[in-house]
Design a protein around this nucleic acid. Sequence first.
DNA 1: CCGGATCCCGTGCGATACTG
DNA 2: CAGTATCGCACGGGATCCGG
Lengths: 133, 133
Amino acid sequence: MPTRTAAQQRDEARWAYDAFLAQCPTRDLLDTLADKWTCLVVAALRDGDRRYSDINRTVAGVSQKMLTQTLRGLERDGLITRTVTASVPVRVDYDLTPLGRSLLPVMAAIKAWAEANMDEVQAARRSYDAQAA
Amino acid sequence: MPTRTAAQQRDEARWAYDAFLAQCPTRDLLDTLADKWTCLVVAALRDGDRRYSDINRTVAGVSQKMLTQTLRGLERDGLITRTVTASVPVRVDYDLTPLGRSLLPVMAAIKAWAEANMDEVQAARRSYDAQAA
DNA sequence: CCGGATCCCGTGCGATACTG
DNA sequence: CAGTATCGCACGGGATCCGG
C-alpha cells in the first residue's frame, strides 16, 4: 500500500514550490539570491556581526548604493539583522539570522567553487576563443 | 619545523584567488555563476543532455536571447558541451561537462534553498513591510 | 566622519520579428 | 528547430549630496 494516493501526490505537486516555473514566487527569490553582491555580502558575515564600513571594505568594489540596497533586501527577507547604535558617529551593525546562516554554506560554496576552478575555466575560455578564430 | 616558511605562505597568499577582491578574475566568474538563468539552466541539465527547445520549456519564462547567451557563456567557460546534429530540422543538444557537473550540486542547492525557505522568507517580508507602515 | 538617499546616464534585459 | 537582429525601456551603478 502506497503511503500517498495518486490524488494526494497531485495535490502536493500542485502546491509545491518550483523555481523552474515562471510564476512561482521562488523565481523572484532565486533572482535575489543568485546575485554577486548577495553572495559576497552573506559570505562576508560568516564570522558574525560587522559594521557597514567593514563590509564595504571586505566586499571590495561594491558601491554604497548597491551595498545598502543588498543589505536592505536581505533584511527584508529575514536573512540579516540591522542594529543601529546611536553614537557619534552612528554605528550600524549587520548580522546573519538563523535563516541567513542556513544560506551561508550555499553562498560560500559558490564563491569557493569559483576560486577553486578559476584556472580550469580560464583554460576553457582560451581554448574556446582560439577556436572562434 | 613548519611545513611552509613564512615567505612561502606569503607567496601562496599573493597568488591565491579571492572573490572579495575587486580585481580578482573570480569576481567576474562569480558574477556569471551567481545568475538566475545560469542556475536554472545548469539545474535543467541535471539528468543529462537536453535539446535547446527542451531547456527552453523547462526553464519557463526565459527569452531566447538570454537562453542562448547563457548557454554560450557556459560553453565558453567549459561547463557544458554543444552538439549539433545536421538533420532536418537541425538538432542541438547540450550537456554538462565533468567541470559543469561539479557545479551542479551548488546550483541545485540554491534552487532547493529558495524552494525550502520560501514560506519563511515571505513571512519575514510581511513583517518587514508591516513595520515600515 | 559614517551611513545612506538622490540624481543621472549607460548597460543590458526582454519582446518582437526575421532567417538558415 | 535553433537561433540572430533590432529596439525601447527599466535597472544597475557611479557620482554627488544630506543627516546626525
